[in-house]
Structure formats: C-alpha cells, structure tokens
Design a protein around this nucleic acid. Sequence first.
DNA 1: ACACTAACGCAAAAAGTATTGCTTTAACTT
DNA 2: AAGTTAAAGCAATACTTTTTGCGTTAGTGT
Lengths: 196, 196
Amino acid sequence: MWAVTAEHPARRPGGRTARVRAAVHQAVIDLLHEEGWDDLNVALVAERSGVHQTTIYRRWGTLAGLIDDVVTERLTRSSPVPDTGTLRGDLEAYALQVADDVSGPLGPVFVRAAMIGTRDGEETTPRQIYLLERAVQLQAMLDRARDRGENPPTLLELMEIVQAPLYFHAIFFGRPAGTDHTLTLVDRLLALTGKS
Amino acid sequence: MWAVTAEHPARRPGGRTARVRAAVHQAVIDLLHEEGWDDLNVALVAERSGVHQTTIYRRWGTLAGLIDDVVTERLTRSSPVPDTGTLRGDLEAYALQVADDVSGPLGPVFVRAAMIGTRDGEETTPRQIYLLERAVQLQAMLDRARDRGENPPTLLELMEIVQAPLYFHAIFFGRPAGTDHTLTLVDRLLALTGKS
DNA sequence: ACACTAACGCAAAAAGTATTGCTTTAACTT
DNA sequence: AAGTTAAAGCAATACTTTTTGCGTTAGTGT
C-alpha cells in the first residue's frame, strides 16, 4: 500500500528498475503537459510508458504517491540553492528559480501535489525530507550573508514574503508571477530587514 | 455530470430539498472532522446523512462538486467583510477572520478544496463567483479607507502580504498562524504602504 | 557460467465509483 | 383538496480502479 521506493534503500537499483522508473516518470510529465491534471490516471501512465499497471501500483501504491515521487525528483534535481556572493543576488536568483519552478504546465501541479501529498499522521515522505533539507540549505544561504556582515531576513520571512506569494499566484491566478513582480517581492523582503 | 445546484436557480427550493442539502452538508463536515480527507467518499456521506447515494450523485455530480458546495456555503456564511472605521481595524479583523477560517480540522481542507476545485477551462463555479464577490467587497473596504483620507494598500498587496502567508502556514506547517503572528502580518502591510 | 531472487508482466478477480430506468414521496400550483 | 411534477428512493447495471496469484525476465553475487 505504500511506496516501496522509500522502504528499502534500494535492494536492487540496477538497470531495469532504473529504466522503468525513468519511463514512468517521463510518461507522467508528458501526460501532464498534454492532458490536464484531471485526466491523469494509472492506466494512461502505464500505456504511455510501456510499463504494466500492476508494476506501477506495486512500486508507488497510488497515483498520488507516484506524482509525489515525480515532483520530489524534479525539485531535487533542478534546484541548487544559489551562492552569488551577495544577499540580494542570492535572493533574486532563488526567487526567480521558484517562480520558474511553478511556471509552465507543471507549475500548478507541483504546488497542488505539494499540498495534496501532505497526509495526516503518516510516516515521513521523501518530499518532507526534501523540504527539510531545502530549509537547511536556505538557512545556510542566509547564514552566509550574515557572515559577510549583511543583515539577512529570517527563513520564515523569506518564505512568507517571497515564497508564499509566488505559490499563491500560481494557484489562485492560475499563472506564475512575472519576473518584475518576483523581483519586487525580493525588494519588499530586503526593505523590511533593511529598515528595522 | 455537473452540479445541478448551480444550473437551475432553484426550481423547487422547498422543505425536503433544503433538508436533504443540510443533512448532506452536515455529514460531510462531521466526516471531515472524524475521518480524514482521504477516507471521505460518497458512500460514507450517504450512510451518515441518511440520503441515498444516487441523490448525492444526481445533485452534486461528484464528491469534489459536493465538497466545493460545502466549502463555498461555509465561506459565504461566516465572513462579512469588516467595517470598523479605521484601516488598521478592518485589516486586523479581516486577517484574524481568515486565520480563523483556516483553523480547526476543516481549515486545511478549505484551502485544499479551494485549490483542487480550480479546474481548467470549465465553466464558472459557485466558488469562483464567491471569490470574485469577495474581492469586490475587500476592494470596497480599501476604498472606504481611502475616502477617509487614509493610505490603504492595494488588493494585491493585501493578498500577498497577509492572505498568502496565512494560507501558506495552514498548508505547509499543517497548522494556522497564531494571533500574534497574524497581527504581525498586518503591521508589515501597513508599514509597507505607510513608508512609500 | 550458474544459481538466486527482486522486480516485472500478465490475467483474473475484487473492490470501489458512477449511471440508468423506474417507482414513490412531497412541494408547489390552481 | 386534488392534480402536477421536481426531487428523492431503490435496485440493477456499467464502468473504473486496485489487488492478488503465479509465471517470466534479468540484475546481482558466487
């Protein structure tokens, strides 16, 4: 019923397993581009990927679990925390990266999946681990700024003033914030900490 | 396939119809309290409410449609836009109201439902209408402040600086922001517009 | 190279979800 | 108070999703 992927730390990670995983992931991404979120189901993914339905159920348990895995995978790859040498540079790079993550056909899906995946009272999911790691990295980014003698915001402020509005846009307006507006959010964050 | 509720503007709104609607709504709310989001299905709602499954399908089409109706109904009731006489008073009252809306067992469900309900290319839903009406009311609240000679933020700023973080908290931290923190958000909004 | 077994494929069955045709109830109309 | 019909009940059916048992394939260790 649960994702085997996270259970055993990979008892046989070799060729075929990896190939199947890649094919299924690619199928999910393709289908999310072509069809919408609502028309996505395990049967479609199976057909597109050439992987049997049963295999998908056994490895990922549910469609939600699979999407969770895909989203986490994508986020983990495509997002090294920036280190440009200045606080503003780091924040702008980070903000644009997030804006980009929630762009395109997959953006709203990411955010939606992030929320839907959040189940109550269940054991730790790969994405929760990812979010935690990411929080640590972002904190390190802010710490670097402090070490340089700059006056960085807290992690919470970063999330509330930059991250939250970016997600909000993607969800409720159905489209991501533009570049200008994204940079405005960073200005707002810096103005806040620059003043007090 | 779609919610009949919104189709005909109520061709027979009388006693029984209203009773059935109330019973079903109550069952949904109760079940969301007791079980989680994930275990909720039409069969359970039918059993709990004493209303036949067929009736639920015919009136609301799907579980998502039903939840949409319940959420919209709740939001519509419990939230008159404040009019305290001062901008700060209005904003604080509003922020606390939102924080309260996303509190309790139903809070995350509300936010989640708000997102899930957002389907692409479908006709206007009752909740979209609600959100639009609400936006108009909030704009009116800000206009009142301007008429009094105060310097209110834009609607977008209100949503980004107050609303978005409150939702963000509820979703990602699994619990709503506290009173103190909610008021901090209002301070932040006022500081922003007070300065520039 | 050979044995071992995790992971996959396949088909059938089970469980869950949604639809349809018809009957009955009760709100509304006159 | 009698007729009309929207809305609800009921049961049978169709459709979709998920699970299960077993045979096959191909990484992995010796």
